[in-house]
Amino acid sequence: MTASIVRPFQNADLPGAEAALIEVHGTDGYPVEGVDQPASWLRSPDVLAAWVAEVGSKIVGYVAVMRPHGEGAVSLWVQHARSDEEHVAVLARLFVIKEARRRALGEKLMEAATDYAQSRGLRLVLDVMTKDTAAIHLYERLGWIRFGEASHRYGDDRQISAVCFVSPA
């Protein structure tokens, strides 16, 4: 079995991450946005840090920690915790291609993002579409706390229901 690693994203990883994103969209319908411009979606100016999962020399997964903008899970958590956005970041854009699953790569990507956030005194929040049941099970298995529901807004005024999670304390 080929070894797998999780490491910080490098600019040279962009073509592989784009290909993985498009593949995941084809198999899972995730993400609902961003596939038409994968480079912009992956390398948004709001990305604080990102990591890739690699098997052999192939990029098979990705995750980012992003700046909050008061949307969905962020605003709910700030209200719930009586906190402010300065102490919150968003775990986002987590995906692993189908052929690389069952190697704990999603978990390792989340661990890298969580370690980054904790080292900076940030609490991670996210919203996950209710249709993405495998992701919901992953977050719950890793001890993330479900604290509300929101609408995930995308595209031209489209929305889908989502569950909000916060990272373990």
Rank of each mutant, 00 (worst) to 15 (best):
R82A: 15
V96L: 07
G26T: 06
D127T: 10
Y62V: 02
L122S: 02
D46E: 13
P15W: 02
P31I: 02
A73Y: 06
E54I: 02
A113I: 07
L14Q: 01
L48N: 00
R101Y: 07
G61S: 05
G29P: 06
V88A: 08
V88I: 15
A89E: 01
P45A: 13
L105D: 10
H25E: 06
A20C: 07
T133W: 06
W77L: 07
E85T: 12
A104V: 00
A20D: 01
A19D: 03
R93S: 03
V74I: 11
T130G: 12
H80Y: 13
V63W: 01
K108I: 02
G61T: 02
T114D: 08
D36A: 14
V65I: 12
G16M: 08
T130Q: 15
G26P: 01
G29Q: 04
H137C: 11
T133R: 13
L76H: 08
I22F: 00
A53Q: 05
R82T: 13
S119Q: 14
L138N: 04
K58N: 12
R123V: 15
L94P: 05
Y30D: 00
P38N: 05
A19T: 12
I22V: 15
A53K: 02
D132F: 13
E71Y: 13
T27C: 08
K58R: 14
G72K: 05
V78L: 12
G29A: 08
Q79R: 14
P45N: 10
E86S: 14
H80G: 10
A50T: 04
L138Q: 04
L48T: 08
P31M: 06
V52M: 07
R7A: 06
M110C: 15
G34A: 10
A20F: 04
H69S: 12
A49S: 11
V96G: 12
A117K: 07
I136N: 10
D28F: 10
E54G: 03
E111R: 07
E85G: 13
T27I: 09
P45M: 04
F95P: 06
T130K: 15
A39F: 00
E71D: 14
M110E: 12
I136P: 03
Q10A: 15
Q10E: 14
P45F: 09
V32D: 00
N11E: 13
L21T: 00
